[in-house]
Amino acid sequence: MNKLKTSSFILFIIMLIVGILISYSYQVTKETQSPNHTSSQQWEKEYEIRKLLIEQEKQNRKLQQLLFKKQQQVTEMEEKLKEEKQIYYNLVEDVEKLRMFVGEVGVVGQGIEVTLEDASYVPEGGNVNNYIVHESHLFKVINELLISGASAISINGQRLFHNTYIYCNGPVVTVDGNQYPAPFVIRAIGDPEVLTQALNIAGGVLDQLAYDNIVVKVEKKNEIRMEPLIKNQTTN
């Protein structure tokens, strides 16, 4: 009987120890596997975040490429606008020059003043017509000034037009219907040095006028003003 009790007690002790060992083993296994499980979840989360970052970077690159293209388009448009602005500016300049040439607007600038006078002395028996200013003399001066770059010309204050007519009638010269006596003052707007040199060329206009007994005086002017032709025509 005592042997049976002792065997039962020993068996109980053994079972208790085995139970404790099993429980301990389970607890150790659980604690050992728990970090692995957590690491797996964390890895999956990091993977998803990394995936989102990669997608975002791809989207950013696309946006950067789009921005670069738009910047190029803006640059091209700015260059085009600059060119158009320059073209418009040139057109405005050309229009203003043309308006000045045809006499639609007044003009101010430096230039020269050429005064033609009849000869102060006529030899006895000489032909008076050979000692006075004629339209041909005026045309010589005007044509030389135009060829030399004069932008506007006037005679005795009357500005000349592209179809201005000039003719001589005795001691007076008629310009577009208006009569002017000598002396005849021709004003031209342009580079004073160029205009003066053009008239003073050897064998040129001034020498020809001197040969025709015409008294000529040339002066450089810092400022010459001419009214628009329309105003002159309205006044006339």
Results as ranks from 00 to 15, higher is better:
8 S>T: 04
8 S>G: 01
10 I>Y: 11
12 F>S: 13
12 F>W: 15
15 M>N: 07
15 M>C: 03
19 G>T: 11
21 L>R: 02
27 Q>E: 12
31 E>V: 09
33 Q>M: 10
35 P>N: 06
37 H>R: 15
40 S>Y: 11
43 W>I: 03
43 W>M: 08
44 E>I: 13
46 E>G: 03
47 Y>A: 12
49 I>M: 12
50 R>K: 14
52 L>R: 03
53 L>C: 11
54 I>Y: 00
57 E>R: 12
66 L>D: 14
66 L>H: 12
69 K>H: 11
69 K>N: 11
69 K>G: 15
69 K>L: 09
69 K>E: 14
70 K>M: 12
71 Q>G: 14
74 V>M: 11
74 V>Q: 12
74 V>P: 05
79 E>C: 09
80 K>E: 12
84 E>P: 12
88 Y>N: 09
88 Y>P: 08
89 Y>W: 13
90 N>P: 14
91 L>M: 06
92 V>S: 14
97 K>I: 10
99 R>V: 14
99 R>P: 07
102 V>P: 13
108 V>D: 15
109 G>C: 14
111 G>S: 03
112 I>H: 04
114 V>L: 11
116 L>W: 00
117 E>L: 09
117 E>K: 06
118 D>W: 02
119 A>W: 08
119 A>C: 08
124 E>P: 04
127 N>D: 12
128 V>K: 14
128 V>C: 11
129 N>V: 09
130 N>V: 13
130 N>I: 06
130 N>G: 09
132 I>N: 06
135 E>W: 00
136 S>T: 00
138 L>I: 01
138 L>E: 01
139 F>N: 04
141 V>M: 09
142 I>E: 02
142 I>V: 00
143 N>I: 14
145 L>P: 00
148 S>Y: 03
149 G>Y: 07
152 A>P: 00
153 I>P: 14
154 S>Y: 03
157 G>W: 10
157 G>R: 05
158 Q>S: 08
164 T>K: 00
171 P>S: 10
172 V>R: 05
174 T>I: 01
175 V>N: 04
177 G>V: 02
182 A>E: 11
184 F>C: 04
188 A>L: 01
189 I>Q: 00
190 G>W: 03
196 T>E: 02
200 N>V: 08
201 I>A: 14
202 A>Q: 03
205 V>T: 01
205 V>Q: 02
206 L>Y: 02
207 D>C: 05
208 Q>Y: 05
210 A>Y: 10
212 D>T: 04
214 I>D: 00
215 V>A: 07
219 E>T: 02
219 E>R: 05
219 E>L: 06
219 E>V: 02
221 K>P: 01
222 N>F: 05
225 R>T: 02
228 P>K: 07
231 K>R: 10
233 Q>V: 04
234 T>C: 07
235 T>C: 00
235 T>Q: 12
